[in-house]
Design a protein around this nucleic acid. Sequence first.
DNA 1: ATAAATAACTGAATAATATTCGATAAACAA
DNA 2: TTGTTTATCGAATATTATTCAGTTATTTAT
Lengths: 151, 151
Amino acid sequence: MKDITPKLINLFKQGYCAPQISRISKKIKEPSTTIHYNIKKLEKEGKIKSYKAVFDYKKIGEGHCTYILVNLLPSRYGSPEEAARDIAKDSRVESIDICTGDYELLVKLRTKDIDEYYEYIKTSVKKFGFAKTVSMTSLKQLKTEFVETED
Amino acid sequence: MKDITPKLINLFKQGYCAPQISRISKKIKEPSTTIHYNIKKLEKEGKIKSYKAVFDYKKIGEGHCTYILVNLLPSRYGSPEEAARDIAKDSRVESIDICTGDYELLVKLRTKDIDEYYEYIKTSVKKFGFAKTVSMTSLKQLKTEFVETED
DNA sequence: ATAAATAACTGAATAATATTCGATAAACAA
DNA sequence: TTGTTTATCGAATATTATTCAGTTATTTAT
């Protein structure tokens, strides 16, 4: 057996999906060629960046999700943006924002479990120069799990 | 001219996309029927929930993004989950998590501009019984749930 | 360890879908 | 107005997904 599942998940995180023109055509009752024309236009304008899969993260072994508010040591990087670019390289970092307020960065981290999360914090404090962090672990994600099923 | 664009964006937020089996087949050099079989399996297991488009939110007029940490009035709802379900109904709420820490909810809000954001806060404090909120407006998104941002 | 049952893989055929093309119509600019 | 660009859309073509059936691999039961 060749376990291609991890490869598929990885590709779907990058994209490798496409719009369903004929289904959209039926839904909004316009010719499929018109739908096609309009979608290509959205893509050319850069309004649509890609198409990707939505996962049930628990089921793919990435169930632990934590939002980390970060204060950076002023000494380590020239700017929060520079730090953020470095932090973003880790594939477990799902998103990273530079924000207003008491904390410069908001890092959304997905790990297998709390142990992997703890290990991440420990190494990152050193590696990136986190001066102070506040962690908010997600107990339940309501909106990302929402998928409409009516046709 | 029939402006289909808003309809398309709305549908793409729900799904209306599909995996590109033949492209994946070429990429990882496995027969397309094998790819097909494995993807269907992932779908049946619920590991993949749907396929969606990824937008450039600035370009589609949803450029203002704020993370709102929320304390709820204990009186209004029976549980934070109940409140979250109500809050999630607003299409401008991109995600909502029930979290550990000082604030029960983390709401990710996408609006056109700061004025719409302010209007949202004003009405939500009353409507959902927000006792206390802390707002972190995203100045720059280095990485989103979906794709890395290059600009 | 062996047999039976189940799950996974795959090529060939078919069904469904996207894309191209050319013609028309609508919107826009000078 | 007139010319120019943008948008719509049906018919033909190209590409892609899906089904099916045979095979192999893996797991389960005896």
